[in-house]
């Protein structure tokens, strides 16, 4: 392992990714985005100066520590919250609120427990396509249920399903909305390793078929490398920011078994890990605890210094 970490850094990679040169207008653009929570001394900067361009049809994965602000970033893109500074744009327009154009798959599935699989998806489809005939909507729903292999469970309620099945319903609900972009917020992090692998394959198949723009947020470097065109590490908070992007130029479809032994895959993984464990690492252990008592911490204390001086 140490030998791998000491391997020479990849310098041949161009600093400008291909898509930037190909298209002058990225599909999604984050410009100097910052977001903080709390007020006064409790104020805690979650995201600091994020810049990100995503091309249409691209599959981008963001890898980061838990608690580093990944979900905050997702909520910004979904339009559920607004940034304090900077802009989030999609298709040349600023994102000002949530919209079915950006289909969000929640970490904890967010299925409505009193509705069946079919009804959960129908809630979205009926709302978004009111002009379709009843038969067309019905067929549309059934199509997405069968796409995630849940037809036998179509009349079951979420509490009768396993975690993997619930996440499938959630994915099907989002896909049935025909979004222009898919936002996957740690969709598989609550699942066991085997179910995770199966669903990763399903996500890749679905993406290969539709070629929708996808942003995946995960804490699993392998998952990111297996699925994405580009992997971007997110440094540990507070004040998390994006590290250097890593282009994943592995041929598709990627086979999880062979890819693990591929030296290039290992090199890419180390590149991401080097940033996450080095420059982008958490400053202190037990950051979660530190966050609560942030005002008494060194960085915050130094921030307050001018206050003291001016007095």
């Amino acid at each position: 392992m140490s030998a791998l970490l000491e391997s020479p850094p990849i310098t041949a990679r161009s600093t400008e990714p291909d898509y930037v040169r190909m298209s002058s207008l990225p599909f999604v653009k984050l410009k100097h985005v910052s977001k903080s929570y709390g007020f006064g001394q409790q104020r805690r900067e979650v995201l600091k100066d994020l810049n990100l361009d995503i091309a249409r049809g691209e599959f981008v994965a963001i890898v980061g520590y838990s608690g580093s602000g990944k979900t905050t970033l997702m909520s910004l893109l979904a339009g559920l919250i607004r940034p304090d500074f900077g802009t989030v744009m999609m298709d040349g327009r600023e994102i000002t609120g949530p919209s079915p154009e950006r289909g969000l798959v929640f970490q904890n599935y967010s299925l409505l427990p009193w509705l069946t699989v079919f009804e959960n998806i129908a809630l979205a489809v009926d709302q978004l396509f009111p002009n379709w005939s009843k038969e067309k909507r019905q067929a549309h729903i059934e199509q997405y249920i069968s796409m995630v292999n849940l037809t036998p469970a179509r009349s079951k309620r979420p509490h009768e399903l396993s975690g993997g099945m619930r996440q499938r319903v959630s994915v099907a609900r989002t896909l049935a909305m025909n979004p222009e972009m898919l936002l996957l917020d740690e969709p598989l992090s609550a699942l066991d390793a085997l179910t995770r692998a199966t669903l990763q394959d399903e996500i890749e198949q679905i993406w290969e078929r539709d070629r929708k723009t996808v942003l995946l947020i995960t804490n699993d470097v392998d998952e990111a490398l297996l699925l994405a065109d580009r992997v971007i590490p997110l440094s540990a908070g507070p004040g998390a920011t994006l590290g250097p992007a890593v282009e994943v130029d592995l041929d598709r479809p990627r086979n999880r078994k062979t890819v693990q032994r591929d030296p290039h895959f290992k090199r890419l993984r180390n590149e991401v890990l080097d940033y996450l464990l080095g420059e982008g690492a958490r400053k202190k252990p037990h950051r979660e605890n530190v966050a609560v008592i942030a005002p008494r911490d060194e960085p915050s204390a130094s921030r307050r210094q001018p206050f003291v001086v001016s007095n």
Partner: peptide, 18 residues
Amino acid sequence: IPQDYLNVARVLNLSRMK
């Protein structure tokens, strides 16, 4: 009510009544 349920409503642009 979990915030997630309300987020579902927001993403779907459900009206207040719905």
